[in-house]
């Protein structure tokens, strides 16, 4: 579904993505984690070409993103994206936020779009907030509207760029519940998050990125308990607040004993 082949990206002189190779198959749930400034956001934003890449190739759904003939807008319509700061349209109500793209891009009638939007708002538990403007909603509610807005396009891929990082701890669970329910629908999901409990529950694979390089791709059960790489172990123990020793060192310790 999504294929990164030797992807390199620079922001001016800064090399932000180094030789990324990653294959994500249909229906897979991938969690990306790593320290800030490591290139997680950039990686996820290259998938819908909001960030262009300088080298390598990304193939999404059979279309190469580096090919100038690829219709980026048509491809983006199939890829939902949820942002850290929600990015709801402040001049439109929750319902209108959700209706806009289906009407303008998919060509749905107003009635159909409204029906779909109402259904989605119900699904994220905000049926009573449909006429509220984003300012009148809490952070968690805004993020759930943002998820509903992406779902309204019936995407086959969903990208989540730290969807819970800007939220109060109390509100995080509402958003995570909605996301968990999505994982059961067979949508391919790429999620950047630091909610490791959530990652453990939903992820098929966890990708660890630092300094623009993919250091590890593992099943969640492995990466949290038995990280291979020193850097991963250090990061995980800080996030999970438990001391972790990387695999190779463990062997050395065992041998010494």
């Amino acid at each position: 579904m999504i294929e990164f082949i030797n992807v390199n990206k620079w922001f001016g002189p800064i090399h932000v993505l180094k030789n990324i190779n990653l294959h994500i198959s249909q229906g897979e749930v991938i969690v990306i984690c790593g320290p800030s400034g490591g290139g997680k956001s950039t990686l996820i934003r290259t998938i819908n070409r909001i960030e262009p890449i300088q080298e390598g190739e990304i193939i999404v759904d059979g279309f190469s993103l580096t090919n100038p003939k690829t219709d980026a807008a048509a491809l983006r319509a199939e890829i939902g994206m949820v942002f850290q700061h929600f990015n709801l349209y402040p001049h439109k109500t929750a319902l209108q936020n959700i209706m806009l793209a289906p009407m303008k891009v998919r060509g749905l009638s107003k009635k159909q779009a409204k029906e779909r939007a109402t259904r989605l708002l119900e699904r994220v538990g905000l049926a009573d907030k449909c006429d509220n403007y984003p300012v009148q909603l809490s952070g968690g509610e805004q993020q759930r509207v943002a998820i509903a807005r992406s779902l309204a396009m019936q995407p086959r891929i969903m990208l989540f760029d730290e969807p819970t990082s800007a939220l109060d701890p109390e509100l995080i669970n509402d958003v995570l519940d909605v996301m968990t329910s999505l994982t059961k629908e067979g949508i391919t999901m790429v999620i950047i998050t630091h909610e490791m409990g959530f990652a453990q529950r939903v992820a098929d694979r966890v990708v660890f990125i630092d300094k623009g390089e993919i250091l590890e791709i593992e099943k969640p059960s492995d990466i949290f308990v038995n990280p291979k790489h020193d850097r991963t172990a250090e990061f995980m123990s800080k996030i999970l607040h438990i001391p972790l020793v990387p695999n190779n060192k463990k062997e050395r310790i065992n041998k010494a004993e």
């Binding site: 807008a73 939902g80 990015n87 303008k104 891009v105 943002a146």
Partner: peptide
């Protein structure tokens, strides 16, 4: 904010 443009583009708008 840039995010508005990004949100609009990523929902498939031109």
């Amino acid at each position: 904010p840039k995010g508005q443009m990004e949100a609009a583009l990523s929902s498939g708008m031109s």
